[in-house]
Amino acid sequence: MSKVGIVLISHSAKVVEGIKEIIRQVVKDVPIETAGGTDENEIGTSMEKIQTAITNANQGVGTLVFYDIGSAKMNAEIAIEMAETDQVTLIEAPILEGAYVGAVEASMDKSLNEICAAVEKAF
């Protein structure tokens, strides 16, 4: 069965890779994609990386997008608008803790709406 995917967006590739590593200690079967840093691998965000991560994380049952600060949210919102699905949700929660809760909930085959509610309740 397909699982809701997780996208981690940060100004730093190291930050999102570290968060993914933490989550992978507990959750192995949920799609988790990262979009960290600019296209030149500097501090910042990349619309292309975000769009690719959203596409790769989506298995047809929904995708949750978590971000760190500032332009990461703005670029995530634009990428979600450009995505050819309405099953992508930007989550207002701490990136590490929120993504962890989201991944655990997704691993239990919960729906996008159920996972969003669980993350929102936790924070």
Rank of each mutant, 00 (worst) to 15 (best):
C116W: 03
M1D: 13
I43N: 07
I115L: 11
M108S: 14
I80C: 05
T45P: 01
S10H: 02
I80E: 06
Y100D: 03
I50A: 10
P31A: 09
S2I: 06
S71P: 00
S2T: 15
I32F: 03
K110A: 04
E42F: 07
K110M: 12
A72C: 14
V27F: 07
D29G: 04
L8S: 07
G62E: 09
V16M: 00
I95V: 15
L90Y: 10
I22C: 02
T85W: 10
D109P: 00
I80F: 05
I115R: 13
I23V: 15
A99C: 08
D39S: 14
L8K: 06
V88M: 05
L64E: 11
T85M: 09
S12R: 03
I91S: 02
A35E: 04
S12N: 07
F66M: 05
S46I: 03
A57F: 10
M1G: 14
I78W: 10
I54E: 06
F66Y: 14
S46E: 05
V26S: 12
G102F: 09
F66G: 03
K20G: 05
G60F: 08
C116S: 12
S111D: 09
T55R: 15
G44C: 08
R24W: 00
I80D: 05
S111T: 15
I23Q: 07
I6H: 05
G70W: 01
T85L: 08
V119E: 08
G37Q: 02
V7M: 07
V88Q: 07
Y67W: 14
Q25S: 08
I22V: 15
K3T: 10
G18A: 09
A13F: 03
V104E: 11
V119F: 10
I91W: 00
S46W: 06
T52C: 01
A122R: 13
I91Y: 01
F123S: 10
